[in-house]
Nucleic acid binder design. Structure first.
Length: 319
DNA sequence: AATTAACACAACCGCAACTCA
DNA sequence: GTGAGTTGCGGTTGTGTTAAT
């Protein structure tokens, strides 16, 4: 089949959109809907390709787009979902109303990725480069953060394998999945929007209310046990603690955090600082990981992330 | 004041998936 | 079932802005 010619091959305009072009596009879509993106530019009188129009509309002109900086809550959600789903920006964006995949991708690449690296964590795998431990020393020093991310990564791989396996088994007509039949029938997203996600949010509120009257660090750890609370905890900690408490809190931080503190001092404005702390809290995880992961199994209802049928062997065979 | 570097984000490209005749 | 056409997605690049020298 012949690939649709690029804009430049048709002598169409490229580069930044002018306010006039924006107005034409918005007016046209308001009156007629976008219909076929390919025919839209001609019908609207724009010298752009349909692809460019679609991108401009979905990433910038759409009326429901939320502008402004990401909130700590959104940031936390992005980190958590990225840990689960990887670079599935569209799926992540679907969980953040008003945010576009492009915006989230840019935010990840310019802010969060950098912060991961400064913490010595691989932003792709959410794991420390030193894991898996190859020596007793390394093994004993495996950080809670690493264990946390390893757990999440395992969970992600298992669910992906399961999704593939079940997609194969049921084809595209399974009643179990959303009727759209689109790849959005992602188990993780279903989980995120299910009782489990709800439980996450409930625990988050409760734990955050506790943290304001107890030791910040110990509370943060118990809170992040559920993989949550970074932004809210941080906000509360910031509010409640004076300079002295802040230092005490930081003295408990890991070596990786020290690297972060040292290497990123140039950008240590209030927001960045608090966000770094948020990230660390989010990544932190207590040593009894099995318990945390059991949390899932107890809250999944008729959806199980770790079905009994999915043993390590079946996982391997399904991949 | 001029230049350079770093940053943020809009826009483009190419591929894969999807739809439909 | 097949292939042309269309759409959506993720990676990458380009451009404007701000900060540093």
């Amino acid at each position: 089949m012949g690939r649709a010619p690029c804009c430049d091959k048709q002598g169409l305009k490229r580069g930044p959109w002018t306010p006039e072009e924006d107005e034409i596009l918005v007016d046209y879509i308001r009156k007629n809907g976008h219909g076929s993106w390919r025919s839209l530019p001609k019908l609207a009188g724009l010298l752009r390709c349909g692809k460019s129009c679609r991108l401009r509309w979905t990433n910038y002109l759409r009326p429901d787009i939320k502008r402004g900086p990401f909130t700590l809550e959104e940031e936390k959600t992005i980190i958590q979902l990225h840990g689960i789903m990887g670079n599935r920006w569209a799926s992540i964006a679907a969980q953040l109303p008003g945010r576009t995949d492009n915006e989230i991708k840019n935010f990840w690449n310019t802010h969060l990725k950098k912060r991961f690296r400064s913490l010595g964590i691989n932003p792709h795998t959410h794991t420390s480069p030193s894991s898996p431990a190859s020596s007793p020393m390394q093994k004993s020093s495996t950080s809670p953060s690493t264990r946390h991310m390893t757990q999440w990564e395992s969970a992600r791989l298992e669910a992906e394998a399961r999704l593939s396996r079940e997609s194969y088994r049921f084809g595209s007509s399974q009643s179990d999945l959303p009727t759209s039949g689109k790849p959005d029938s992602d188990y993780f997203l279903r989980m995120w929007n299910s009782e489990v996600g709800e439980s996450f949010r409930r625990f988050q509120v409760r734990e955050t209310s506790l943290i304001t009257c107890q030791s910040p660090y110990s509370q943060a750890s118990s809170s992040t046990k559920l993989g949550l609370t970074s932004g809210m905890i941080n906000t509360e900690v910031k509010k409640e603690s004076d300079q002295h408490e802040e230092i005490d809190f930081r003295s408990c931080r890991s070596d990786a955090e020290d690297v972060m503190a040292g290497s990123d001092s140039s950008s240590s404005n209030e927001l960045d600082d608090s966000s770094d702390l948020s990230l660390q809290l989010l990544l932190d995880f207590p040593s009894n990981c099995d318990e945390e992961m059991n949390f899932f199994q107890g809250h999944l209802g008729n959806f199980s992330l770790f079905p009994n049928v999915l043993t390590e062997n079946s996982l391997n065979s399904s991949l």
